[in-house]
């Protein structure tokens, strides 16, 4: 392998990886407050892209993206209030099945609203063939948007969870829901809020990714599978871990194509998921001890 090719693969891998990581972060937020995996996370990504594309007809790009994020957050809140909030002490399994059902529901609704055709947002800078040359590699400027947005999300989230009272309350609910309630925290509101937050992040990811990957009513599910793999790989609930794991998986996928046929790319990530679940269920960057204290 030549050096040029090495760096091309590296950048392709980082692009894939960062996209997986943003989806994984959405999984982590809801996991951190509720202890469940929201399998409708991929649908939030799709909704964000789709709503922004529709809004773009009537408003400029930044406003359309903001609108899409806000609307998707409302959808997230609505879902939580309608389907999850009223459950008394739901089991983890029940919550997971509810979210799988919701993901199918959202997908079908999107099919009816937007139809089956593929759409995309325009490139934020330049167009489809604009590239930035970095030494031997050429990279689309949109890749930097994806990386930048992901970086900002991770930074703001870690500040939010550590510094703000709301963030601390959300973490308290995750650590021990009953104790948090006894301390006067409204645990139900925290869950609603975590759905809104992860829906918003998913939507933002959907917007920055749309020019690269395109958006279709069913584009959420494959992303959710990759995102879930990355979330597990990085250790559930660990945002930094998700970024590292995402980049790792992306790079493995990118380099794998020089050894095995491309169609095996997905098989590789699923294999990694299985191996991790067997060997190190708390993820590469998670701690085994905390994992044992959690329900799931």
């Amino acid at each position: 392998m030549t050096a040029d090719l090495f760096f091309q693969y590296l950048f392709a891998g980082i692009t894939y990886g960062i996209m997986y990581a943003i989806v994984a972060i959405g999984f982590n937020i809801i996991y951190n407050t509720t202890g469940i995996i929201n399998f409708a996370q991929g649908e939030f990504v799709m909704l964000g892209g789709m709503i922004a594309i529709s809004l773009l007809h009537v408003m400029p790009l930044p406003l359309a993206i903001t609108g899409a994020v806000v609307l998707t957050m409302l959808v997230g809140a609505l879902i939580e209030i309608l389907f999850i909030r009223w459950l008394d002490n739901p089991s983890v399994l029940r919550m997971i099945i509810i979210t799988i059902g919701l993901s199918i529901l959202i997908r079908e609704a999107a099919l009816h609203i937007w139809g089956e055709s593929i759409r995309s947002l325009p490139y934020f800078n330049g167009n489809e063939i604009t590239t930035v040359t970095l030494g031997p590699v050429r990279v689309s400027p949109q890749v930097f948007w994806v990386i930048g947005v992901c970086g900002v999300i991770v930074l703001l989230l870690s500040l939010f969870f550590r510094m703000t009272p709301l963030g601390r309350e959300m973490r308290a609910c995750a650590a021990n829901r009953r104790a948090a309630v006894l301390c006067g925290i409204n645990a139900r509101n925290m869950v609603t809020f975590s759905f809104m937050l992860s829906a918003g992040i998913g939507a933002l990811a959907g917007c920055v990714m749309s020019p690269i990957t395109y958006t279709q009513y069913d584009s959420g599910t494959p992303l959710a599978i990759k995102g879930f793999t990355v979330a597990i790989l990085g250790g559930l609930g660990n945002s930094m871990g998700a970024v590292a794991a995402g980049i790792l998986l992306g790079i493995i996928e990118a380099y794998s194509i020089s050894f095995v046929p491309l169609a095996f790319q997905d098989a590789i990530s699923i294999t990694i998921l299985l191996v991790i679940l067997f060997v190190r269920p708390h993820g590469l960057f998670g701690s085994g001890e905390t994992a044992r204290l959690k329900e799931f």
Binding site: L5, Q8, Y9, F11, A12, G13, T15, Y16, M19, I212, T213, Y214, S219, P222, L223, E253, A254, Y255, I257, S258, L262
Partner: peptide, 9 residues
Amino acid sequence: TDLSALVAK
């Protein structure tokens, strides 16, 4: 969703 690695190859 992205084929840049394939194109590089």
